[in-house]
Design a protein around this nucleic acid. Sequence first.
DNA 1: CCCTCCCATCGTACATTTGCGATAAACTAT
DNA 2: ATAGTTTATCGCAAATGTACGATGGGAGGG
Lengths: 102, 102
Amino acid sequence: MPYTEKQERLARYAKALSHPARLFILEFLESQSCCFVGNIVDELPMAQSTVSQHLKELKDAGLIQGSIEPPRVRYCVNRENWEEAKALFQGFFREAEIIANH
Amino acid sequence: MPYTEKQERLARYAKALSHPARLFILEFLESQSCCFVGNIVDELPMAQSTVSQHLKELKDAGLIQGSIEPPRVRYCVNRENWEEAKALFQGFFREAEIIANH
DNA sequence: CCCTCCCATCGTACATTTGCGATAAACTAT
DNA sequence: ATAGTTTATCGCAAATGTACGATGGGAGGG
């Protein structure tokens, strides 16, 4: 592995955040503190299948989690990984600042 | 435009950070406070042309800038855009925290 | 001039991402 | 059973990303 574990994880989170639709979904999820897939589909200008795919990528990245509530699926932010992502980004920018101020 | 300006800009920065090699380059640039392309190529397990391509993407995203010092090229972090990226990421995670704590 | 050094760019190949419509799968309700 | 609702998955097309070797171009030194 030529890169550090932190670099790999941060890159993975950054990739999950690299599409405006996924940023929208995450912000929407926070503003509602969990919601159903249908609510998200109604807010986005794309097909249901495409939204589902973005949800899958966010889930694979660990940033959200889904729970089945028939006949619907409720998605929430995964707090644990969200905090990890936040810490990784903070560390990335803060370290740089410390170095820059020397 | 279905997305906000902030979402578009944040997504763009996130995409620039979505590859471990580019994270490495940015961290390396900070630790040296500017350096030459050759120094970066020596540190990465990829061809010079590939490194150059990653540098171009970071430059296009506005996170770094290059200056010619014959026969070499010196790259530095673009402080202004770096601070903007930092603020956007901070805002993204902080807003979420405020909402979540309600 | 020509040669060398350093880096960018080109052309290529392959993998991944993004988007859609269509279909399947899971569960309710009738 | 059947039909309806909701979401995931499949198959496809187009675009983008990642990597390489080879080539090009600028600046300086012989």
